[in-house]
């Protein structure tokens, strides 16, 4: 769910801001300007930080709540940055019947953040995904491209430890 406030401090650069302001200027005053500008902002920052939305709000004359209505409506937008390590928990049918819900809970517990968000230190983000096609290994998680299968919740702390210690 995108409606969780970002906990990671904003780290935008001046170059990013310049690029955003150019995008706003290119679309300001035109009908339907919000979508392309929001897409551009997400391309610039990798997500839609509140600071960027405030710029867009001022530039396009739309309120923050109007923009947030759009951002939270479309799955393509994210209000949270990706963590340095990306954890995907498969919630496809096969994984689900093999206990993926408990796996996801263990991951969330272990990292201190919910699916769709990022941990307070910015290190991890969790995605709950559809079937990733590894049903034979159900339940499955992927961390930075490494696949871990046939898991029980007890396996999770050991796996996460490998990534927390870098």
């Amino acid at each position: 769910m995108p409606n969780t406030v970002t906990v990671v401090p904003f780290q935008g650069t001046q170059e990013q801001e310049k690029e955003l302001l150019e995008a706003i200027e290119a679309h300001a005053g035109r009908p339907g300007a919000a979508m392309p500008v929001l897409q551009k902002a997400q391309a610039i920052y990798g997500y839609l930080p509140e600071e960027a939305l405030a710029r867009i709000s001022a530039g396009l004359g739309l309120t923050m709540s109007e923009l947030y209505g759009i951002v939270s409506f479309y799955a393509q937008f994210s209000v949270n940055p990706k963590g340095r390590h990306q954890v995907s928990v498969c919630l496809g049918t096969a994984c689900y019947v093999r206990g993926a819900a408990a796996i996801l809970a263990a991951v969330e517990d272990g990292l201190g953040c919910k699916a769709g968000s990022v941990s307070p230190d910015g290190k991890f983000s969790i995605d709950a995904t559809r079937c990733i096609g590894a049903c034979g290994l159900a339940p499955v998680i992927i961390i930075d491209g490494d696949v871990y299968g046939r898991l029980t919740p007890d396996d999770i702390p050991g796996i996460l430890k490998k990534y927390t210690e870098d």
């Binding site: 769910m1 995108p2 409606n3 309120t63 923050m64 709540s65 109007e66 947030y68 209505g69 939270s72 409506f73």
Partner: peptide
């Protein structure tokens, strides 16, 4: 003022 508005979609 416009500080409130609909967020998310569908049943949410």
């Amino acid at each position: 003022v416009g500080v409130i508005g609909p967020a998310a979609r569908g049943f949410d």
